[in-house]
Nucleic acid binder design. Structure first.
Lengths: 229, 229
DNA sequence: TCCCAAACCTGACAATTGTCATAGAATCCC
DNA sequence: GGGATTCTATGACAATTGTCAGGTTTGGGA
């Protein structure tokens, strides 16, 4: 049974909520629901997208390959976020790859539905604009963090970010489990460095681990570390 | 004599060109032209802006203070760019400071003119959106560069950027002269490191200097350096 | 279940980068 | 024009981070 956008709660969290009933109906009629397994790409850097992806479930990393062969993760996108908007709007091929770090359920929405609405419904356009303004601010913050904080501080911050944005499971581990490599790609460092610092945090009692899973033990100390104590 | 927006060539370079005649007239009637001297701020991080600034002349750095007391320069804005859009649109206080690195002439446009048009003129909104999409892409690139390239590579890249975006003067020096500190704040490193690398580039014959002025001598080698050779 | 590849971890070392100290050069302002 | 202040430059050193080279553990598939 295919569900309708009109009834999709996810919509409440993104700019689609500014669409009119008819516009939404059109989107719903043209959308395609897809399942993406962990590790599979939604799209890759350089692809020309002919639509956007609305995330219903799961989490995707948005990353960019640098000339030294390492991926930099620029953002982690979850339920409710719309991916690929930037390139559809700018009519450019995408500058980022989107790869699932958990199994995902997404709706593909052909770009016509989006671009038509952008041209006709100022409320929708404004809503998209507000979202993009927010993303831009976040990107500025990332720039400052990455250039002015030590790797240790950035890793501490990443853990707090993961807790605040994706929560914890019943055992107190971060709900989103990333590989050490992904963690190092989020903070922009070598995998070995990330692993070493994780070990150090564990020894100091700031976190505890179980396999890949990481749990925060001393949030206050992590916060102090981020601030530079 | 106060000039009118309708006749301002600068407008051709930014989203204001998507405004209708009446809208533009309204903007022109409400705008205030200001002169900002080198080193003076247009606005500072945390300010609530009640308008945007359209740059007619000169160059401004957009920077953000990090917790360790250093500024990170996120963008250099020149003739034709509109500053403060992001915070006016998101209705938040600004996350960046804008400080003139050259004497500037700017037009202050009260936010009402902007927000009204945003709500009524989808073409304008879409144009602004496209600009912001572009800025977001640039921000992503900065993130990748800063986290994956060495300081040396980033400085080489910064020089090429300055040449491509602001040009050279008649003697072959970069038209935009930044202090060593500003350069280090662009690439996200310590001032001493920047100075040292500039000296090294000079010794290797990649650049030449005269006081604060820097000229590019071997563009090819700089480009190779950026790519990692 | 067992095996293999991938992921994780650790040590040793080198390279990069930041910090502190100091000194000369340029610039501003009275 | 001269003194103060800011900017530039360099050395010495320490801290951080990356790289290489191994090991161990883990997890998924035959």
């Amino acid at each position: 049974m295919e569900s309708r956008c009109e009834n999709c709660i996810i919509r409440q969290f993104n700019s689609l909520r500014a669409m009119s009933k008819e516009e939404l109906k059109h989107v719903s009629d043209s959308k395609i629901t897809k399942t993406i397994k962990k590790g599979e790409p939604l799209f890759e850097e350089g692809d020309k997208l002919n639509g956007v992806y609305c995330v219903r479930n799961g989490i995707s990393k948005l990353s960019k390959l640098s000339s030294n062969g390492k991926d930099q993760i620029v953002k982690l996108a979850t339920k409710g976020e719309v991916l690929g908007q930037r390139s559809v709007i700018a009519e450019e091929s995408t500058n980022l790859s989107a790869i699932a770090v958990q199994d995902m359920e997404v709706c593909f929405i052909p770009k016509e539905s989006i671009t038509n609405t952008l041209q006709k419904n100022p409320n929708f356009t404004l809503e998209v604009l507000r979202h993009m303004a927010h993303d831009l601010k976040e990107a500025d913050d990332v720039i400052v963090n990455i250039s002015q904080k030590t790797v240790k501080q950035r890793i501490a911050e990443a853990f707090l970010y993961l807790k605040n944005n994706f929560g914890e499971d019943e055992d107190g581990f971060l709900a989103l489990t990333l590989s050490r490599e992904d963690i190092s790609n989020v903070v922009g460092t070598a995998t070995e460095s990330a692993i070493r610092i994780i070990s150090e945090f564990k020894k100091k009692g700031l976190i505890h681990t179980s396999g890949k899973k990481i749990g925060i033990k001393d949030e206050r100390k992590l916060m102090e570390m981020v601030e530079g104590f």
